[in-house]
Each structure stands twice: as structure tokens, then as C-alpha cells.
Simulated assay, not measured.
Amino acid sequence: MDTTTPPVNTTHAPSPQIISQDRVKFSGKAGEFFGIWTVNILLSILTLGIYSAWAKVRTYRYFYSNTSIDGHSFDYLATPIQILKGRILAVAVFVIYSLVIQFFPTFGILLAICLLFAMPWIINQGLRFNMRMTRHRNVRFAFAGNYGEAFINFIILPIASIFTLYLLLPYALKRIDQYMHENISYGNKPITVNLQGEKYYMAALITIGVTIAGLVIFGIILGLTGTAMGIGAIDAENIHPSTIIFPVLIAALYVAFLTLVSAVYQSIIRNHILNNSEFEDVASFKSDLKAVQYAMLLFTNAFAIIFTLGMAYPWAKIRKARLLCSATEVTIYHGAIAIIDTAEQQQSSFAEEAANVFDIDISLT
């Protein structure tokens, strides 16, 4: 009897051949974008908002063209007329909704319910339009979400989280991110996304911890400020410097606190999404955005915009784009060469603009 153990097959699937591995590059400059931004603002005012469609396209094209992977920049393909048509329709719907609410409250409630059911369609169409208008290396992106999944993720789960005292909220946010990203494709290649619910709960707990610690520190400083201002108020003839310095300090700390909390959550979730997403045999991603660095950027951006009455906005936007790109690494594999662009289809911008009018955030990481 032959008792020889058969050889174990230790052969593994070969790793995909890497073409390039590098950080995303951003070459935009604050001075250049300041000129675009200034013209956009002035012409939008002079044309009573009509030029805003051209302003949006110019802004998107500037940032897309200055963002590159492996030496190839992105293209934004939407035209101002597409944006303008969609914006006019969306504003018309919003005006009708506002008038109905004002003069026919009962019908307004029904219209609000209809809008609630229309929201998943608006979100899907907005994402589909944005993806379809984005191109890299002459290959367009696409979005393949459906109404049923969008309704569950954007409507049912957020509402259900209210009845669980928001214990379900991190899971709902995970499902929303999973849905938005896993339905993206590059040409004919869908993306694979594997997000973990526990990561969202961990991010929520860390954010809550930072919030509690910040509130304690904020409360102590506020108490000291009140005491110092009380002392200054007693000496009415000789105003104590603290009555001026401390309120400014409190405002600065408040802004710093909000940006820190926001940066902690955003950095954890952004890193998790990108580190667990890939176009198989085409590209994989890595993000190492640091919460403290991101918080400092958001904080200084906010203060620069406030103290310059908005004039530092272009500088702030360029800084943020540069940091996010530098924190992102993309590995491109040999399979990218075989990507075939899917048949081009004309998309409407109505849904995207409707989403903007009704303040629905459908941005991606």
C-alpha cells in the first residue's frame, strides 16, 4: 500500500504586474485659481447667476486638469449649457415647491413626501452624471447604482437610526459609503470595495472621545474667561485686556475644536475607504491622511477665510486639494492597458443640480 503523501500545490496566482506606484500629484496654484475665482464671482453677479454654470465648469476643469496620476491628468467633460439647463430646471422645481408650501400647506406636505421618494433617484442621477463627466487617460468613469438600494441606504437606514438613538448611524454611514463607491466603474472595470462596519463604529467612538475631551477643556477655559472678564468689568475705568483677548481666544478654540472633530472622523473614514478599494488588476489605492495635519489645515483655512472676508478662499481650496492628493498613493497594474471605454451616453445634469438646490451632499471621497 502506497502511503506516500501527494505533493502539496504551493503555487500562488501571480501578482499583477505593476506599471507605476506614486502619489497623486496636484499642480494647481493659489494665484492662478484666485484669478479664475474672482472672474467667476464678478460675472455671476453681473449676470444674476447665469454665469455660475460656466463658473462651475471652469473651476472643475482647473482642479481636474491639475490633478494627475502617473503623469496623466483628469478631464471634466460637462459643458456649461448642460449645467445651466439642469440648474434652471432644478431651481424651477424648488420655486414651485416653495410656493406650494407657502400657499397650500396640505399639498406641500404631499409634495415633501414625493420629494423624499424622489431623493434616491436624484442622488443616483447626480452620481451617474458626475462619474460620466470624469475621464482619465481617455477612459470615462461610470456609476451603476439602482433606486432600490439607494432608497434603503439614503432613506430607510438614516430614519431607522433615529429610533435606535443613533446607534445604527455608523452602520448606515458605512452602507452609504459602500453603495456610492462600489457602483463606480472605470471604463468596463467595476471597483471592488470591502468596508467594515466596526471601523465606522471605532471612528465614531474616537470622535465622541475627542468631542468629550474638547468640551471639558472648552468648559474650563470658558470658566476662566468668565472669571477674567468679571474682574475686568469691576474695573470699569481701566478695561482689563482679558475682556478683549479672551473672547477672541474662545472663538478660535471653538473653530479649532470643530475642525479637529471633523478632521478625526474624515481622515479615519477616508483612509479606510481608499485602503479597501481597488480596480482588480487595474489600480489599487492607499491613503495615509493624518488627522492632526488635516485638522491644522482646516483650522488655518477657516481662519484665513474669516479674517480676509472670504478672499483667502482660493488659497484654502488649493491647500486642501494639495494635501489630499499628497496623502493618496495609486498603484497602476498592467491590466489598465486593456481597459475599454464603454459606449458614450449623453447624461442630463438636472439631477445633479437638483441635488445642489435641495442641499443633498452626493460628493465622493
Rank of each mutant, 00 (worst) to 15 (best):
R319H: 12
A312R: 07
L297F: 02
F299V: 05
L297Y: 09
W315T: 07
A316F: 08
T308N: 03
L323G: 15
C325F: 00
K320F: 10
A327W: 00
I306V: 15
F299W: 14
I306F: 14
F303C: 09
V330D: 01
I318T: 10
A321W: 11
R322P: 03
A327C: 13
W315A: 13
K317S: 07
P314T: 10
T328V: 02
I318S: 06
A316W: 05
K320A: 04
M311C: 08
P314G: 11
L298Q: 08
K317W: 14
R319G: 06
A302I: 05
A321Q: 14
A327V: 02
I305N: 07
M296R: 06
A304E: 02
C325T: 14
E329Q: 11
T300I: 15
L297A: 02
N301I: 02
E329D: 10
P314A: 13
T331R: 04
L324W: 00
I306C: 07
L298Y: 04
G310K: 06
F303W: 15
I332W: 01
K320Q: 13
L298N: 15
R319A: 14
R322T: 08
L297G: 07
P314C: 10
A302Q: 12
K317R: 14
R319F: 05
T331G: 05
I332G: 00
W315I: 13
V330K: 00
L297V: 08
F299Q: 04
A304V: 12
A321Y: 08
C325S: 09
A321H: 09
F303S: 05
R319P: 09
A312V: 06
A316C: 12
L298G: 14
F303A: 10
E329R: 04
T300S: 08
I332N: 00
I306Y: 11
R322Q: 09
Y313S: 15
I306E: 03
F303Y: 15
A312F: 08
Y313P: 06
L324S: 01
T300K: 03
M296C: 12
T328R: 00
K317T: 10
S326C: 11
Y313G: 12
A304H: 01
S326E: 14
G310L: 06
P314M: 09
A327Y: 00
L309M: 15
L324N: 01
Y313N: 14
R322C: 02
I332C: 01
G310M: 07
F307L: 13
M296E: 04
A321G: 02
F303G: 05
F303V: 02
R319N: 15
Y313E: 10
F299G: 05
T300V: 11
K317H: 12
S326K: 03
T308Y: 07
F299D: 13
L298A: 14
N301T: 12
L324Y: 00
K317L: 08
C325K: 02
T300N: 06
A312Q: 15
A327F: 00
N301Y: 01
L297I: 06
K317V: 12
L323E: 12
W315Y: 11
L298C: 15
N301S: 15
